[in-house]
Computed example of a mutant assay.
Amino acid sequence: MYVIETMSLYEYGVRMKAFSLKRIDGEYQDHWKAWLIARAKDTVKTGKDTVGPRYKNFRDFFDYRKALQDAGERIESAQEERLKTVARRVQEIRERRQSYGEL
């Protein structure tokens, strides 16, 4: 027999944030590997006869802090939308109760 557990909106938000952060860490690892390969292979002409690397440091290639910030903003906006939806539903229920009470 399966037991279904309910979770609060807060717990759901925490789990979604953990999922997003885990995904970003995976992207970081993928970008790190790609950057090492690109660093070894990719060059750009910097002068008349000189050749240098396309990305001088890893942050130019993948900004981990920006990715974390963007994920946090996406999570917060999604949580706000869920909270707005819950608030609208609660308001609808209250209005229905009031209309039934008047009958």
Rank of each mutant, 00 (worst) to 15 (best):
T85Q: 09
E11V: 03
S99N: 11
F19Q: 14
K84G: 05
R97V: 15
R74Y: 13
Y55M: 00
L36H: 13
K48G: 10
R97A: 15
Y55K: 01
K56V: 10
L36Y: 10
L68S: 00
R82V: 04
G13L: 00
V51A: 05
Q91V: 13
G52D: 07
E76I: 12
Q79T: 05
S8H: 08
K66N: 09
R54W: 03
G26F: 06
V44Q: 10
R94S: 14
D25Q: 09
I75N: 03
G101M: 09
Y10G: 04
S8N: 01
G47P: 03
R96M: 12
A40R: 12
Y10H: 13
V86C: 08
G26T: 05
N57A: 09
Y100N: 14
F61I: 01
Y28Q: 03
A67C: 03
T6G: 03
A87L: 07
G52K: 01
K41W: 07
M16P: 00
L103Q: 15
M1Y: 13
R89M: 11
L68W: 00
V44H: 04
R82W: 04
Y2I: 08
G13E: 03
D63R: 02
R54H: 06
D70T: 07
R74M: 11
Q79M: 14
T85P: 02
K22F: 12
I75T: 10
D25F: 08
R74A: 13
S8P: 01
K17Q: 09
R65D: 09
Y55A: 00
R88I: 06
D63V: 03
K48C: 05
G72A: 04
S20C: 12
E5P: 06
R54A: 04
A87Q: 07
E92I: 09
L9H: 12
L36V: 13
E5S: 09
Y2G: 01
A71F: 04
E5K: 09
L68P: 00
D42N: 09
D63G: 00
E76Q: 08
H31Q: 14
L9R: 06
K84N: 10
L36W: 10
Y28F: 10
K66M: 05
Y10C: 02
Q79Y: 06
D42G: 02
M1C: 10
Y100P: 04
R54K: 11
D49F: 15
A38N: 04
V90A: 14
I37H: 12
V14A: 10
Q29N: 14
R54G: 00
I4V: 14
Y55N: 01
D49G: 02
G101L: 11
